[in-house]
Design a protein around this nucleic acid. Sequence first.
DNA 1: ACCTGAACACCGTTCAAGT
DNA 2: ACCTGAACACCGTTCAAGT
Lengths: 182, 182
Amino acid sequence: MRADARRNRERILAAARELFAGGPPEVQMDELAQRAGVGVGTLYRHFPDKEALMGELVRERFELFNERLQVAVADAPSRAADALIEALRANAGGLAQDAATRFAFMSGGERVFAHAEAEAGEFLRLCEILVRRARRSGGLAPGFRAEDIPMLMCGVCATAEVHKPGWDWERHLELVIRGMRG
Amino acid sequence: MRADARRNRERILAAARELFAGGPPEVQMDELAQRAGVGVGTLYRHFPDKEALMGELVRERFELFNERLQVAVADAPSRAADALIEALRANAGGLAQDAATRFAFMSGGERVFAHAEAEAGEFLRLCEILVRRARRSGGLAPGFRAEDIPMLMCGVCATAEVHKPGWDWERHLELVIRGMRG
DNA sequence: ACCTGAACACCGTTCAAGT
DNA sequence: ACCTGAACACCGTTCAAGT
């Protein structure tokens, strides 16, 4: 990949992070290209369509999620449940500060997630390790499953998008954690 | 309102319920009008824009939610927590069977909810009555608030939209209920 | 190899003409 | 009063021409 192409790709992603963070009213592809300082054609050369661009934001976020889960996996198996919950808090906090990626998570369809399939698979795999350990060492509700984690986190993410009195993703997360614990 | 106008309005809503239930790929206004057997202009005469049409689905759903909550309010104050939770299960079940309205809930923006502001306010008011009673008679976690209910239900609704192995709105709801209980 | 932006296609919305 | 649908406007996407 040529140096200018790589730089353009980075600029496009940076522009997406800036503009999607502003949220709806809808961000346009022309606007995105202009902010990145490239032509629209270049945008489409790097990302086949708008969903692929959002998909890349999601993919990179899953990488960050997985780093945190790796930290929890590296922790002592005896405190797997606590380590898992700390990782969830850290991940939710990171996403809460990244409105652009939250927008991509919520407003994209299936295709956005298809772009991050490998990373989402790894996410689930790491959750499974931690849930399996926690099942032995305790601290999780009986019957709690690894797949419950992305499902519940999706709800917390949805909350972070809504700006209404009483809606608070940290509160939502803590209520969910209470349900997770044994 | 003239009889033919009223009939057209109903037909448009019926078409919206049918077509939105198919979910993305996007439903178009022309398609909606055709299914309803009216011209696009008629569609716009009844609903100023697409979000207003989705807003009407949301508004009517809140009315159903409130009916269920009224049943819980009519129940004995001593079992307010159980009655509230039964109402939540019934409401979630109703929404789970109505893909069109779920689509409206999730993919619409602020403006969709603005259309149902009165009904959403009533929803919260009824939740407040039940939470206040439950606080006295027990069965809810200390510190649980009425505003937590729409927030948590939004998460359950988001789950119902995702068709992935292990994603199950009923499971999500039960995990959330476990967190609500004292 | 990669970039550009005018042109195209699609779909939400409007409005002049009709009943 | 209400309805119709051709026309318009907007924005995602393509592609012929350029470097």
